[in-house]
């Protein structure tokens, strides 16, 4: 994918030089332009599921996820507009309404990327009804907890387990609204044969779905872990 060529593009009117094959998100980041994202994490493959990083590209009526769309020469990208803002707000609203997210009783309160995004975008109420179905909380592991009631299905945990830890203990079962994170053959975490208890999944979880019991979440979380390990390996 990574070519040797260099391309020039404009992001929010700013002239940016990027490598061929690089994504819009990465080019924007280097230029100091912040694009909101939730499922994306440095050091992991791009997923393109949360749709927060959608941007407009001149000449196309479509919206493109910045985390997966490669740059091209002469491209003109807009990362912020009333329309994008409205859509991003809706995405956050929908995520908050999908599960019984109750910040007040959540371990990640104050350390949650979804909560932060809601604040940033001023999502001060939900226009859609909230789902109040209770989902499985797996407390069987000696210190890791999976609370599906808080999971936003960003798949960072899956990807870090597969790509960085190299185990792929986690995956998703079912599909659509029934999608749920599983460990092995939908086993209890405590009886998993493949999990190495490395806790990287808890480190990268943007919300309070996977956490370490009895540990302050601020100590568990480490968004840079994947990138850090990747760079170490390249040494």
């Amino acid at each position: 994918m990574s070519g040797t060529g260099v391309v020039k593009l404009k992001i929010d009117g700013v002239e940016v030089t990027a490598n061929e094959g690089e994504t819009i998100l990465s080019a924007a980041k280097r230029a100091g332009i912040k694009i909101p994202a939730l499922c994306y994490l440095d050091g992991l493959s791009s997923y393109g599921g949360c749709r927060l990083c959608i941007v407009e590209v001149k000449g196309s009526p479509r919206l493109f996820p910045a985390c997966t769309t490669p740059v091209s020469n002469g491209m003109e990208v807009t990362t912020d507009s009333p329309k994008l803002r409205k859509y991003r707000k809706m995405t956050i609203e929908l995520l908050l309404s999908e599960k019984p997210h109750i910040c007040a009783i959540c371990i990640a309160n104050g350390n949650c990327e979804l909560q932060d995004l809601a604040r940033e975008f001023g999502v001060d109420h939900l226009r859609v009804e909230r789902e109040w179905k209770s989902q499985k909380i797996d407390l069987s592991h000696s210190f890791l907890v999976l609370d599906n009631n808080r999971c936003i299905l960003c798949t960072r945990c899956l990807r870090v387990c597969d790509e960085i830890e190299g185990v792929h203990a986690l995956d998703i079962k079912m599909r659509g609204k029934d999608s749920q994170i599983i460990i092995d053959i939908d086993d209890d975490w405590g009886s998993s044969i493949s999990c190495t208890s490395c806790r990287k999944c808890a480190r990268v979880c943007p919300v309070g779905a996977i956490y370490v019991r009895d540990e302050p979440i601020s100590r568990t979380k480490n968004k840079d872990i994947a990138q850090f390990i990747l760079l170490r390996r390249r040494r």
Binding site: I102, A104, D124, H125, L126, W132
Partner: peptide, 21 residues
Amino acid sequence: IAIGDCAITGNVPAMRNIINN
């Protein structure tokens, strides 16, 4: 004006909704 998470989302009081409505 709705003030606080209970008025806005249901919050903790609404957790009883989980018990089969």
